[in-house]
């Protein structure tokens, strides 16, 4: 019995597309001084891949290129959302990035990754004031510890 590999190829494209976007968006947003260029590049890549899928010679190539193209367009939007998360302190800021350094000085941004913990089953209160004060004083250490109070 011959196996139908189309679905497996699409599954691989979907999973790797989401995973690479998930990791890539965070890295690119943290290391780009301006986010306009990566957003434009992701949009161009996404639209280009979708245009290619219209003329692809078979279903697998058409599907895989469109799936990756759509995830690229999604990633372009996610870069904006990631910047908002950093500004709100929902994602760690990079103190070496001037854009993030400004967030750290003005808002509730933090260098700590608040998601780097185990669920407790109870609501938690997070103290970011200490982390902000530390960053404002020029401490650019990569803080891997957590400041979570129950």
């Amino acid at each position: 019995m011959a196996l139908e590999w189309s679905g497996f190829c699409m599954a691989l494209a979907t999973f790797l597309g989401i995973w690479s976007g998930h990791v890539g968006v965070r890295w690119i947003e943290a290391h780009s001084v301006r986010i306009v260029l990566p957003i434009v590049l992701f949009m161009i890549g996404g639209i280009g891949l979708n245009l290619y899928s219209l003329f692809a010679p078979n279903l697998v190539l058409a599907g895989v290129s469109s799936i990756l193209g759509i995830t690229f367009i999604w990633d372009a939007a996610e870069i904006c959302r990631q910047q908002k998360r950093v500004r709100l302190g929902h994602a760690p800021a990079n103190p070496n990035n001037p854009r993030h350094a400004a967030f750290l000085q003005h808002g509730s941004a933090t260098c700590d990754d608040l998601l780097d913990r185990e669920p407790t089953g109870q609501p938690v209160v997070v103290t970011t004031a200490d982390a902000n004060a530390r960053t404002s004083s020029g401490d650019t250490t990569d803080h891997t510890y957590r400041e979570v109070q129950i």
């Binding site: 139908e4 189309s6 679905g7 497996f8 699409m10 979907t14 799936i67």
Partner: peptide
């Protein structure tokens, strides 16, 4: 994803694969 390998139609296989992922 495993089920998508045994479907007779490439379109349905693709839909099952994407949903699985």
């Amino acid at each position: 994803v495993v089920l998508s390998l045994f479907l007779p139609n490439a379109g349905w296989s693709a839909l099952f694969g994407i949903a699985g992922a």
